[in-house]
Structures are given as C-alpha cells and as structure tokens.
Design a protein around this nucleic acid. Structure first.
Length: 581
RNA sequence: GCCGCUUUAGCUUAGUGGUAAAGCAACGGUUUCGUAAACCGUAGACGCAAGUCCGAUUCUUGCAAGCGGCUCCA
C-alpha cells in the first residue's frame, strides 16, 4: 500500500478518536482511505454542523502532535466482542469476518477493528496537510434499507502544498461546472412551474442540440439506420408485455388513467423507446433479408428519478435519447455490435474524448428471476458473444458482474469530464429477451420463423447528459461547429452600424450563426462581453474595414488576426465547421 | 427517497426583530470610441405558507427548489 493511503487511513482513525472524545456515545461504522482523503461513519446523538468539523479538526491536530503510535494486535473473536461490546456495528463486522481471530489497531486511547496497514506514528503526518471538508449521510454498508450514519469526509495529502493545490483545483472545477456555465452562457434553465429535473433549453442550448442531432442523423444514415418517430406515451399492456413494468415501475412517472366509453385504460409516459420500436418491427412481416433492421430516433423519455438523484443536466427527468434498436440474426450480431462500438469511437474522436472506459456489465446468478430475466443459458451465450467480440477486436474493457440490464448484458461507456466528474455517457445493450416477449419474428432463409436479437444503443447518450458533459469538457468554449453564436459582428461606433448589419445578414444567409453587437458601448466593452460569451470569432468593423470592404477578425482567446475579405473569412470558417475543429 | 446544509434584484454579494446596501447586467441619456469594463441617471429583491411578537426578510415549524453526500442511473 502506498504511504499516502496509510496516512489517509490513519487519519480516519485519528478522526474517530477525536470524535469519540467529543461525542463519547458515538457508535462507529467504518473509516477507509479514499481518493484524495478519507472518511469515517458515525452514529451520533445530534446532527453535525460545520463548526463541529473545526472542533474535531482541532482535536485531531492535538492528537497528532502527541506522536501517537499505531500498534497492531491479533485477538480472538471472543475477546474482540468484549472489547467492542458497546459498538454494535463493529460487532456486526466481527461476526461476519472469516476465521477465529481479528486484528485491531491501537492508537493512543483509541482501538479500532482494522486490518491495516497504518503508519507507525502520527509523526509521519504533516499537521496542515489535511482538512475535514464535509458532513454527509451514508447508509450503513451502502444499503438504503439500513440506518443512515453520519459520514465525515476529509482531504489528506503528504504535504500542505499538495492540499492547497487540490483545493485550488476544486475551485477551478467549480468555474467549469456545467450548471454555472449553463446559466452564464444561457444554454438551459429550470423553472419551478415546470418542475425539478425538467430542463428548458434556451436558444443557445437548442442550437447545440440541432448540431448534435445533425451529426447523429448524418452518421446514422450513413451507417444504414432508418429514422422513425414514436409517441411519448403508451398503454400499460405494452410495458407489461415487454417486462419493463416490474423492473421499472419505480422509475416511471405514475400512470394516467383515461376513460373512454366507460372503459378505463392506464397510459404511461415512456421511460425508454425500445417497446415502441419493437411495435414498428412488428408492424409488418419481416424476412431475414430485412435484417439487420436499424431503427433510430431521437426519442424523449421521462424517468421519475428520485429527487435527491437529480443533478443539473446530468441526471434529469426528461431526456432526449440518441436511441436506436438494431434487430439482427445471431450470425449478424458480432458485426453489428462491432459497428456500434466503432461508431462510439468515431464520436469520441470528434469530441476529443480521450479518457473513457468500456464497462461490460454481466448478470449474476443470484439475480436471475429477480433483477434479470431467468434464462441462464441465454445470458451465458450473449455474454460470451459480447466478450468474444471485445477480445477479438482488442477493445479494452472492464467486466463488472451484476450490473446488466434485465434483458441482457450491456456495455456502458464511462467518461470523465474535464473537472474529473465521472459518469456513464453512452450505453450499448444486448436484448435477447424482449423481442421474444413481443413475439417478434422474421422468416429465415429456411422458411422458419425466428426471433431476432436486439441491440439497444445510444452512443450520443441523451442531449442532456452529453451537453452537460460537453460544457465541462470545453469549459463552455465550444468548437466553432457547436458554438451557439459562431460570429459576433461588432461595429466600432454607430457610424459603422449599417455596414455591420449588412455583414451579419450575409453571414446568416450562409447559415452561420451570427449576432450583431449594436449596443451603444465602447469597443473594448463589446469585445469583452463577446469574449466572455465565448464566441469563437469577432468581426470588428470600422472605417478601415468599410473602405477596404473587408472585416477585421479576432479569434477567441487569440486576439486580432488582421483584415480579410468577408468571402475569405466565410471560406475559412466554413472549412473549420466542416472539419468540426 | 434518506442525512446535512443553503435560499436577499437577472447575476455575484452586504445587512437588520422596526420592510434592506452595493457591483455587474437591464433601461434612458451623454459620448462615437480600433481589440477584455467610458460617463450620468432610472427601475428592480428578502423562495412560499403558517406560527410567535405591538411589529418577522431576520426567530420557530411546514413546504418548495437548490447544494454536498448516500442510494440509484443515460
């Protein structure tokens, strides 16, 4: 174990020790080292406040200054149970640990059940290299059915300098936060009248969406997808048949009941597009010659996410998915699956996404019949097919058990935004179960009816999550093709307004998103405003430009690039737009 | 949903048991300007609802929204 991890882990013990001094009746949970720091879970008699953290931190520093030694002891479980008699959570852990003995670490007055390792003494800790940062609730053992404990998080590094740098980095990250930039750059908003998790796209956001959809539709058309459109609601029977209801009922908005001719029917807002697409597959007899059939749609879905799970644009209740379902034969599966992965990689290249992980999620035996469709043979078969494809193509992936969709294994693509926020962007799922449930069939070359395999894929995720990610990825400075306003036209004074209007009009006629900065303000101020809006190009227009019938170009962050004709400028940016730079 | 916190003008922030201050933005005017903030003026806010109090933006409770986590997820 690295030294810093030992320090972090040891600090969590010191913190527990300090908390026990201040709250003698506290019950202890667990306290591991984590990335950049540590935490410890407690059950306390009262809620913790910010000022308690300062108090605990002070106490920790006192303890550290005493040069406390960490000593390990192996004791038998009976002794351990006596030792931790007043610590119910520790007793629970002792019961669960294998073997007859457990190890403890003693540091000063404090003894903890712990397998270690630890530093030798608090001498090894630099006094100002750690900081308690936040109080949070956390379920015992991470299970929401268990009691919620109070978790104290701390940051810790080997040196004070590293801590300061980390804090500074967090500050920088805050500036790139998509929620802040989304507001500053007028990309999206929320309204109390509309509801939590239901983003409203402002014109700037809508412009970005348009471009992304254009890209998606273009690439999908080239890849042989057919576009479809489906309604946002459907009858309950569809979700019962698909099998979604038992698994998804909690995540779907409560149904609405419509009454016609005295007959009541339940309708659900769609939380996914698949069953609708399946109905399109079923709309006509299909032959093996029709396969693979790739149905694509930017479909809006609604998921009733728990209120505490909502997070800016990253986790919302209404979302537009870059969805498609590929119906294919078993023989076609490998190739189709691979093509989808290639599509992902192509998109990542366009957006300059370099850090990503493909997570291959498989089923678990225990979940069969509960979390997953109960057909182990098919699970094995499809998982083997996916794994074999990945291995054959040497696509790096990590395999995680027990995270599959209920109808089949999936690959989620995890990305990290520029500020280190990690989340699942895209998903690619295999479905061997739902087509069967809907009785989807195609006639094979031997004249027999067979059920297709379905691949669900969403390489561009949802507009919400992708744009949330891209805002942070680009720190709001979108590449030209995605920029809501591509060119700001800035007349130096009112005299030049007419010329500026003419230039702006010509740009708009060429399908360039241009905005004229016609306010009665100084040039410097208008430039500043445009730079803060992160507009890629500014055209500064004054007497010189009018007499030369030209434009003076200023590129975002690069300053004055000199004069050129409007045509030359348009050619230049058109090329840049096409190249998506 | 759970634990904790937060909520003052469009934004960022100040402040008070006797209804609130500022900067930027907006609007009006002056200025007509050469590459990141001209000048003068005007208007605009205590999240919502109950309670305590002579009086609540301030205290209490509830609700809502948001934030940090947990759980869950595209």
């Amino acid at each position: 174990m690295e030294n810093i991890e030992k320090i972090r882990h040891s600090l969590s013990h010191i913190m527990a020790s300090a908390v026990l001094e201040l709250f003698p009746k506290a019950k202890l949970g667990i306290g591991p080292a984590i990335e950049n720091g540590f935490y410890y879970d407690f059950q306390l008699q009262r809620p913790l406040e910010e000022k308690d953290l300062a108090e605990i931190e002070k106490k920790m520093k006192e303890l550290i200054s005493q040069k406390i030694k960490f000593e390990k002891k192996n004791i038998n479980k009976r002794t351990a149970k006596k030792l931790f008699a007043v610590q119910p959570y520790k007793l629970e852990l002792i019961k669960e640990l294998p073997g007859d003995t457990v190890s403890t670490y003693t540091s000063g007055e404090f003894v903890d059940l712990c397998k270690g390792p630890h530093i030798k003494s608090t001498k090894e800790i630099t006094l100002n290299s750690f900081k308690l940062t936040k109080v949070a609730g956390a379920y015992w053992k991470g299970n929401e059915k268990n009691k919620m404990l109070t978790r104290i998080y701390g940051l810790a590094f080997e040196t004070e300098k590293e801590l300061q740098e980390h804090l500074k980095m967090l500050e920088e990250a805050e500036k790139r936060d998509h929620r802040k930039l989304g507001k500053d750059l007028k990309i999206f908003t929320f309204s109390d009248f509309v509801g939590p998790g239901l983003p409203l796209w402002l014109p700037n956001g809508a412009a970005i969406i348009e471009e992304i959809e254009k890209l998606g539709k273009d690439m999908e058309t080239k890849a042989g997808y057919l576009r479809v459109k489906t309604p946002h609601i459907a009858k309950e029977i569809m979700y019962k048949t698909s099998g979604h209801l038992p698994y998804y009922a909690d995540t779907m908005f409560p149904p609405m009941i419509l009454e016609e001719d005295g007959k009541k029917t339940k309708y659900y807002l769609k939380a996914m597009n698949c069953p609708h697409h399946h109905q399109i597959f079923a709309a006509e007899p299909r032959s093996y010659r029709d396969l693979p059939l790739r149905l694509a749609e930017y479909g809006t879905c609604y998921r009733y996410e728990k209120s505490g799970e909502l997070f800016g644009l990253m986790r919302v209740r209404s979302m537009e998915m870059n969805d498609a379902h590929i119906y294919c034969t078993e023989d076609q599966f490998t190739n189709e699956f691979l093509e989808v992965i290639k599509l992902y990689l192509e998109y990542f290249k366009i957006f300059g996404i370099q850090k990503y992980v493909m997570r291959f999620s498989t089923h678990s035996k225990e979940g069969l019949g509960k979390k997953y469709i109960n057909n182990e043979k098919l699970w094995k078969k499809t998982e083997d097919m996916v794994r074999a494809t990945l291995l054959k193509e040497k696509i790096p992936f990590v395999e995680v058990k027990n995270e599959a969709a209920f109808y089949g294994p999936k690959i989620d693509v995890e990305v990290w935004s520029a500020i280190g926020r990690e989340f699942t962007l895209a998903t690619n799922q295999v479905d061997f179960a739902v087509p069967e449930r809907f009785g989807l069939k195609y006639t094979d070359s031997d004249g027999k009816e067979k059920t297709p395999i379905c691949i669900h894929r969403a390489p561009l995720s949802t507009h919400e999550r992708l744009i949330g990610f891209l805002i942070e990825h680009y720190a709001g400075a979108f590449p030209l093709w995605l920029s809501p306003v591509q060119v700001a036209v800035i007349p130096i004074s009112e005299k030049h307004s007419e010329y500026a209007i003419k230039i702006a009009k010509e740009l708009k006629e060429k399908n360039i998103r241009a905005e004229i900065k016609n306010e009665n303000e100084t040039l410097g101020k208008k430039i500043r405003a445009a730079e803060m809006q992160k507009i890629p190009y500014l055209l500064i227009l004054g007497d010189k430009e009018i007499s030369a019938n030209a434009v003076a170009v200023r590129a975002r962050g690069k300053g004055d690039m000199g004069q050129m004709t409007l045509d030359a400028f348009i050619d230049k940016i058109k090329e840049e737009i096409i190249k998506k730079q």
